[in-house]
Each structure stands twice: as structure tokens, then as C-alpha cells.
């Protein structure tokens, strides 16, 4: 994780990738593929206290602070939510806490996913990011 590109660079790569898909179905299939490539979360970590509230599906986050960087593992029983977790993982895992605090959801809008799924209160993207930011704030203390 030492040579991790900046959040902005990763964002641009994802925007380019999703830009290649011309319909919703392809975008979701790509999102699901990203989720399937997400590193496995240790089953023992999928506990009640690691569940993110506010999602129609179950999402677990295990977050640590290492050298002022936010490090986490996460999983979901929804393939689509897991895809969103994978994007958050690629963008924010191992990034300095200040970067995580600055992270902005409008990027999902650029992917063409924001309006479509994140406007639903049940999908929990907002809740997931809030969860990460809370941990990032703790990390800076």
C-alpha cells in the first residue's frame, strides 16, 4: 500500500472505466465484478457491532488507524453493495485520514451510479462513508 495513488487519481481511473459501459446493466455487472474481487473479510469480524446501520442489506466494516492512515476490511451480503464497498476500498483504504475526511460522494454521481442507487435511503452508501469519516476523525486525535 506504500505506492498507493491519490484519491483523485483512483477516482479518474474509475470514471474512465465506468465511462466505457453504456447501459445500467453493464455498469452493475462491472460493479458486481469489482465486489467479487474484494479481498475476503475474516468471518470472525462480521459481528453485530461492525454492522453499518441504515442499509437494506448487511454491511460490515472493521476499521483501524495505522500511522494516521485509515485501514479497513469490509464485506456485504449484497453483491451490489459489495461492489460499492470495493470502490471505497480501492479509493480510501490505506489513505491518510485527512484524505478520507475530504472524500466526496459526488464522485459516484459521475460514475452514473449516484442518482440511481444512492438516492435510495436503504443502500447505505452515505452511512458507509460517514462510518469511515468518523474513524478518520478518531485517527487524527
Amino acid at each position: 500500500m506504500s505506492q498507493k495513488p491519490s484519491v483523485k487519481e483512483i477516482e479518474q481511473n474509475l470514471i474512465d472505466d465506468f465511462g466505457l459501459m453504456d447501459n445500467w446493466e453493464e455498469k452493475y455487472e462491472y460493479l458486481i465484478e469489482l465486489g467479487q474481487d474484494l479481498p475476503e473479510m475474516d468471518a470472525a469480524l462480521k459481528t453485530e457491532d461492525r454492522l453499518v446501520k441504515g442499509c437494506q442489506s448487511s454491511v460490515w466494516f472493521d476499521i483501524h488507524c495505522q500511522d494516521h492512515k485509515v485501514v479497513f476490511s469490509a464485506d456485504s451480503d449484497s453483491l451490489i453493495v459489495k461492489g460499492m464497498v470495493a470502490i471505497l476500498n480501492e479509493m480510501l483504504n490505506g489513505q491518510p485520514a485527512e484524505e478520507v475526511l475530504k472524500a466526496d460522494l459526488t464522485f459516484f454521481e459521475t460514475l452514473g451510479l449516484w442518482h440511481h442507487i444512492s438516492s435510495q435511503r436503504s443502500n447505505g452508501l452515505t452511512a458507509m462513508l460517514a462510518h469511515l469519516k468518523l474513524a478518520a476523525a478518531d485517527c487524527l486525535k
Binding site: 447501459n23 446493466e25 458486481i32 442489506s57
Partner: peptide
Amino acid sequence: GIQHFDLGILLDTKGIAVRTG
């Protein structure tokens, strides 16, 4: 093997409206 939430979103990509949850 497919969560209800995912099925609802994927059906919607084809214009099919169902409820999940």
C-alpha cells in the same frame, strides 16, 4: 445466492419494478 436488494436493482435496469426488503 442473490440478495433481494440486488435482484430489485438489477430488474430495474430492465424497467421491471418490484419491491424488495
